[in-house]
């Protein structure tokens, strides 16, 4: 069985992370920013899983990735609820236009 070198996993994860960062910066939409953040969290999980290959007895990396997935799910639900409230109040999803705490 040929083993894919660790560096290749790290390079793929770095590419996904940087694309996610660029998405989160450029999109002028709350949900577009969330898409970028999800992509970044996935890239981090690839790193954890790739390093966990060398730890078959305890699998610390995979467990950590599992907790990252749980936190990501909680984060997305709360973020969507907040986005819906902000949209109901300001009628916009552009982060640049939401610049006051109270209208």
């Amino acid at each position: 069985m040929t083993l894919i070198p660790l560096q290749h996993y790290l390079i793929v994860a770095a590419a996904l992370f940087c694309i996610g960062l660029a998405i989160a910066i450029t999109k002028r939409h709350f949900i577009g920013i969330l898409l970028g953040i999800e992509l970044m969290l996935n890239a981090v999980n690839i790193n954890l899983v790739a390093f966990s290959r060398y730890d078959p007895e305890r699998l610390s990396g995979q467990l950590f990735a599992l907790f990252v997935i749980v936190v990501a799910a909680a984060e997305v639900t709360i973020a969507l609820a907040i986005i819906l409230r902000v949209y109901g109040y300001y009628q916009t999803v552009d982060p640049d236009e939401v610049d006051e705490l109270k209208k």
């Binding site: 793929v12 999980n45 690839i46 899983v49 966990s52 290959r53 995979q62 997935i69």
Partner: peptide, 20 residues
């Protein structure tokens, strides 16, 4: 993003993390 998640899931499986 759906396609990207599927690709990442396949990478997990290739790294030996079937449950993840």
């Amino acid at each position: 993003l759906f396609l990207a998640f599927l690709g990442v899931a396949a990478l997990y499986v290739l790294a030996g993390a079937d449950f993840l």
